Every structure is written in C-alpha cells, then in structure tokens.
Amino acid sequence: MTSTSPISTSSTTQRRIVWGVRILLALAFGAAGLAKLAGVPQMVQVFEAVGFGQWFRYVTGVVEVGGAVLLLVLVPATGFIGGLLLTATMASAVATHLVLIGGSPAPAAVLMLLSAFVAWRLRPAPAASAA
C-alpha cells in the first residue's frame, strides 16, 4: 500500500492543469493562426479594418502557429517563450480592439491571461548568484 504525500499530489495536479491550459491554448492559437494564413474572409476583413495591410495578417498567423507549437514542446523553456509570445500578441489584440476596430476585447483578454499564466508557471528558475 503506497501513500501519496499532499505535496506530490498537489504538484501533479498543478502540472496537469498547466498542461491542460497549454493544450487548450495550442488548439485555439493553432486554429486562429491557420485561419489567418488560409485567408478566411472574416480574418481578411478584420485585418483590413486594422489598416496595416494583409502582410500583417500573415505575420500574426505565423506568430500564433509558432506560439502554439512552442507551447506543446516538452522543454519548459519553449513553453515559457511560447507563453510570452502569445501574451504579447494578445495584449496587442486587446489594444487593437479598444483603439482601432472596436468589438469586445474579452476573448483576446482571456487568451492573454491564460498565456501569461502558462508563461508564469514555466518561467525559468532564478540563477544562483555567486557570492
């Protein structure tokens, strides 16, 4: 009969939660990025309203798909980088909704917060300073 300590159970639960959020984000950003790259009419219209040109749609699509891939790589550092990249992307999306195109920034804000959560959970450990 084996007993599981509360610390290891909590740690396992926390890892599962972070992985669940990473998978959810990878699916959402992968789908959104591929829609941008494929030229889905709604995406074309949104980026027309932004006013930077369609090249910006392609750049955003590549960033979103790249971030999604980084979230799924098993190395924690890549998940951290992916989380940061997608947090910055969604912060820009929130600002774009508020300043340029209107509409609700809530979906972008939720994705930003979830991406920031992943980046925070996967942040590198502080380096020990030499005394």
Rank of each mutant, 00 (worst) to 15 (best):
S8L: 12
V40M: 13
A68K: 10
A31H: 08
G61S: 03
A127I: 13
A26N: 07
A131M: 07
T12E: 14
G79Q: 09
L114K: 05
S129C: 08
A116D: 13
P105N: 05
V21D: 03
V21T: 12
L70S: 06
E64S: 03
R57Y: 04
A125V: 10
L27S: 06
A35M: 13
T9Q: 14
A88C: 14
G79E: 07
T13H: 15
V118N: 07
A116I: 09
G103S: 05
L98R: 07
P126V: 00
V59G: 03
V62D: 00
V65I: 07
V99D: 04
I101C: 03
S92Y: 07
T13L: 15
V69K: 03
Y58L: 05
T4D: 06
V18F: 12
A130V: 14
A130F: 15
T13Q: 15
A131G: 14
F80I: 00
G83A: 10
T89V: 09
V46G: 11
V50P: 05
P107I: 14
M1F: 11
R121M: 10
W55H: 09
R123T: 06
A68D: 02
A91F: 13
V73T: 07
F29L: 08
A68S: 06
L72V: 10
P76L: 02
M90E: 11
L111R: 00
A130R: 15
I81F: 14
A32D: 02
F52W: 14
A91I: 13
A77G: 02
V65P: 05
A35C: 04
G79I: 09
T96C: 02
L114P: 06
S104G: 02
F47I: 04
V110G: 03
G53Y: 01
V18P: 06
V50F: 06
L27Q: 02
T12G: 05
R57M: 12
A131Y: 15
S5H: 11
A68I: 07
G53I: 09
T96P: 10
S129A: 10
V18E: 05
V63K: 02
R22Q: 14
R22I: 03
I7V: 09
M1H: 14
G51S: 04
Q14M: 12
V44K: 00
